[in-house]
Design a protein around this nucleic acid. Structure first.
Lengths: 342, 342
DNA sequence: TTTAGCACTCTAACGACGAGAGTGCTAAAA
DNA sequence: TTTTAGCACTCTCGTCGTTAGAGTGCTAAA
């Protein structure tokens, strides 16, 4: 596979641009006219022919314009795309929206998902941040109602697990407070894995609490993360490539199937990586149902504290520049939030 | 609009059945053959003609079979449908699945949404249960990390609000405990509306807590509920009426737009109500985007404690009998859970 | 190396056509 | 009076042939 000449690169770039814009095959003549190229359509045709041989373009049928191939998109994203950063005005608008939120992670994640979906016209996905290396800081039990008690586990990072315990019999707040103090002293500084080292006589209540904490451990261990925030799923349906609805279903099934989605979001170390943003084109890897789609992913958070993943899923014919900037920008916002809050 | 004869009712019923099954226009001859009717197709045709005049059937074009109209479905649901209850085996299977869950509301709601979607082949919707008449029982502040504190508000029903407060400066757990006790004494038994009656000098911390509680009040006041659990959205795409994807988008947009969805789910006092289950056909009311759809809704929970809504959204050509039984059954399961747990 | 010109190919749109499905009507049968 | 057989009529759907137009690939000249 030869190096492409500057002119070939230019033409490839324009074709990708134009196709992303119009969703229609792009013809040599059209290109020359629209971009006032200083060459004839015949010349463009020759170059297009080369690009086709090299595998960057294809034509749906013999006498139609060209369309980028998967390789074409990949070359575009990796080599041609100028790294547009978001216009200042938009940054400000978005920052403003976040500043009007409460300091609530959920709300921020929802807002981020909404903005991401609206601005990219694709489906947005965000996993809740997953705390790193969890150590227990404090345990508090609170009587709520009858035989119910709320157990709160505060971790050193500052994040919280909680659960409602159903007790054998009602227990007063005093007793619960005493137990809280005891447990806090025993487990402070330990991580959840060291729970199993604690043995000895336990009341029913204590067993209850222990059982829950172990449960919490198992859960935080095996699930890469918990909730997933999404928005803009219907944006996909608006794209012409999904008008047949069978293709759309395939891609969307993946969004509903949590386990598949988790797999996808935990993808890492992929070919095209730009400043922490990963681009998966045409379901590269083994995402058969995503052959028509591209995915842009980025981690966010702070390595020492907690990390999550955010990204967009859209048709391969996607505004990569804008989407990548958007993902990167929102990743930054959420990271800052985490650092500040935790 | 005259009364329908028994035979007319029978034929209407069969047509609705058949259309729900086949998604295709149903012809007089087809009906006679498939169901071994003891009359000729001509007779059926005459009756179909009457049913068409009465507005229960229509034909897509002059020489095609009949298809139920909105009114036809409504008559079917209201008058013709025999009230099938779920087979015992299925009840057991489902009960078993729930029994294997932890006592966690979230998990139950998710499971219910999944089962509902799979069994009805439609999209399922469940709102988290919303507590009724909230009175404060206890307030607890817990130091978490630096200037962060977790504030927990326990209501008499037993449900919990919580929030992470960011304080002006670090505050020790002792101080927080003192304040917790003070606030608990002042507000115990009050509902959130009486917060505003408390005035007088307050520390920055106290103001902080108060502000949050008022906030919580406003939120629980205006939002009918919080989270919404869904599943099976892609089931809609599989239905032939949504193969054109434009219609599908309209309906799905509604699922993404939280505010619209809230409106829909809080619909109540609708025409067709069967044992607490409400059936909305063809977006009756003013749901223009749901013209092709039907919605089956039921409240669940316990009037004194907390209630939520669950339901399914599918094409008008939907298996009403099965869906209604399913909704009713799951509504019962969730109600029991709430009564038991709270 | 570029470009004008032209032949060639393929799609998309259109209309014609026939087959088939299903009805509505009429007149006979029950 | 009700049911049914028979038949003409209507409308859709798939197929085919045709055409217009878009766009290419190639060739030969600039």
């Amino acid at each position: 596979m030869k190096e492409l000449s500057a002119r070939q690169r230019r033409i490839l770039s324009l074709i990708v641009h134009e196709y992303i814009y119009s969703a229609d095959t792009v013809a040599s003549k059209h290109l020359v006219e629209k971009y006032h190229l200083s060459m004839s359509s015949a010349t463009v045709r020759n170059e297009m022919s080369v690009l086709t041989d090299e595998g960057y373009l294809k034509q749906p049928h013999t006498s139609a314009g060209r369309v980028p191939t998967e390789a074409g998109y990949r070359y575009f994203v990796g080599q041609l795309m100028q790294d547009t950063s978001l216009p200042e005005a938009m940054r400000r608008t978005i920052n403003h929206q976040f500043s009007q939120m409460h300091n609530d992670m959920r709300q921020w994640l929802e807002l981020a998902a909404t903005i991401l979906a609206n601005e990219t016209h694709a489906a947005s996905l965000i996993t809740a941040p997953q705390p790193v290396e969890a150590r227990i800081k404090h345990i508090q039990l609170i009587a709520t109602h009858g035989r119910q008690a709320l157990a709160v586990l505060v971790m050193e990072g500052g994040q919280i697990h909680q659960h409602i315990l159903t007790l054998e019999e009602p227990v007063s707040q005093e007793q619960l407070s005493i137990l809280s103090t005891k447990f806090s002293q025993i487990f402070a500084g330990k991580n959840l894995h060291s729970l199993s080292q604690y043995h000895g006589p336990m009341s029913q209540l204590e067993k209850n609490v222990m059982a829950w904490m172990e449960d919490e451990l198992v859960r935080s261990d095996q699930l890469p993360t918990g909730e997933i925030y999404m928005d803009g799923i219907t944006n996909m349906l608006a794209e012409p490539e999904f008008s047949d609805s069978e293709e759309a279903r395939k891609a969307m099934r993946l969004l509903e199937e949590r386990s598949l989605l988790q797999d996808l979001l935990s993808q890492t170390a992929l070919p095209d990586t730009i400043g922490g943003v990963q681009v998966l084109i045409g379901g590269e890897g083994n995402w058969n149902d995503l052959r028509q789609c591209s995915v842009i992913l980025s981690k966010y958070g702070s390595p020492g504290i907690a990390t999550g993943t955010l990204g967009v899923l859209g048709p391969m014919r996607m505004a990569y520049g804008r989407s990548i900037s958007m993902v990167r920008f929102l990743s930054g916002i959420l990271s800052d939030f985490i650092v500040e809050q935790w």
